[in-house]
């Protein structure tokens, strides 16, 4: 286990190194940050001076070297727009994204598991057909359209739910949470449904097809022959074996969801990391962009590590091969 963790940490460092290198290499093409922080009538000479002060005129390797020097000490640059450490900015935005993803993941688990199982057990039932049809629709509507439709129906027409933002938040030692206020929960409903609208159908279909495959296996037939209770066959024998591929996909998708909540966050003005990233790109705020990419890289490595550990718990075979 120890060797495994060390290996993963080394992997994370390499991933982040590569990402920061690529980020640095392409940041020029995202535009000129100096333009964004000066008024239009500022002279070209003044702009050049600022660029010099910020070290933006140095050769690529010099800039990267300076960045690495800072990074070793834990300083991965300062956001031009927020005027403070890029890492601090990201950390202050992370709770919003994590809470949103957590709620979406919960919605996905709660609905995909029973719906997936039901439509696998009774594939011909009317309800199953309805779920399958609905999931096709869900998968094919882009997130931002779902989001705008929801805002239109529930906020503009019915006035039931707030249309934007996180609402009232409570500061818990630096973690701004919306979970502790009613207002925060209300604001969370639509964004988390919108975010789950793409993954939920995917998971229903995944669980259904895996489950149907498992139900054809010999050991299930044996279980039926043995006269076990249907519930026990479905849940304990069939569903548990369905879980393996679902966890693999789920792990990767969870990482993706944390990283790419961009669309949902933009439409709902949800002040998370994705929204921050898209704004940083628009402003040419290169240090913040590079820092974000590195953090996302780290999240992916961590999530994958956790998935591997869980995988081992569910399927002992994996651990055995891993230990040789």
């Amino acid at each position: 286990m120890f060797a495994f963790i060390v290996r993963r940490i080394a992997q994370a460092i390499i991933v982040m190194l590569i990402i920061s290198f690529i980020g640095f290499a392409i940041k020029q093409s995202f535009g000129d940050p100096v333009r964004e922080i000066t008024g239009v009538s500022v002279s070209a000479a003044e702009r050049e001076k600022i660029r010099d002060e910020l070290g933006l005129n140095d050769p690529f390797m010099v800039q990267f070297g300076r960045f690495m020097q800072g990074a070793v000490k834990g300083d991965i640059g300062r956001s031009f727009f927020y005027k403070k450490s890029a890492l601090d900015v990201i950390l202050s935005k992370a709770p919003a994204t994590l809470e949103l993803v957590m709620c979406s993941a919960l919605i996905i688990v709660i609905f995909s598991v029973p719906l997936g199982i039901y439509s696998a057990i009774r594939p011909k039932a009317l309800f199953s057909r309805f779920v399958m049809g609905g999931s096709i629709v869900g998968v094919s509507i882009p997130v931002f359209l779902t989001a705008i439709l929801m805002i239109y129906v529930f906020s503009v027409e019915l006035h039931w739910l707030p249309s934007y933002g996180r609402g009232e938040t409570v500061n818990l030692g630096g973690w701004r949470t919306g979970f502790l206020t009613l207002d925060g929960w209300e604001h969370l409903i639509m964004p988390s449904i919108a975010l789950s609208s793409i993954m939920l159908p995917l998971f229903i279909r995944l669980i259904r097809s895996e489950m149907m495959e498992v139900l054809e296996n010999d050991y299930i037939k044996y279980a039926w022959a043995k006269g076990l209770m249907p519930k026990r066959v479905w849940i304990v024998h069939a569903f548990k074996n369905t879980l393996l591929p679902v966890i693999t996909v789920g792990g990767v998708q969870l990482g993706t969801m944390i990283a790419f909540t961009i669309l949902t966050e933009t439409v709902f003005q949800w002040q998370g990391m994705g929204f921050m990233f898209i704004e940083a790109v628009e402003r040419g705020d290169a240090p913040l962009m590079v820092a974000y990419l590195m953090v996302v890289g780290l999240i992916f490595v961590v999530v994958n590590t956790v998935v591997d550990v869980i995988y081992g718990l569910v399927n002992p075979q994996v651990r055995i091969t891993g230990q040789k």
Binding site: I148, I151, Y152, S155, V156, H159, P162, S163, Y164, G165, T266, V267, F268, Q269, E279
Partner: peptide
């Protein structure tokens, strides 16, 4: 003051009374 960058969201916020 809340900055709402997305045009559709800004309008929706007004229409919904937020």
């Amino acid at each position: 003051l809340t900055p709402i960058k997305n045009d559709a969201t800004r309008v929706a916020a007004l229409l919904s009374g937020d």
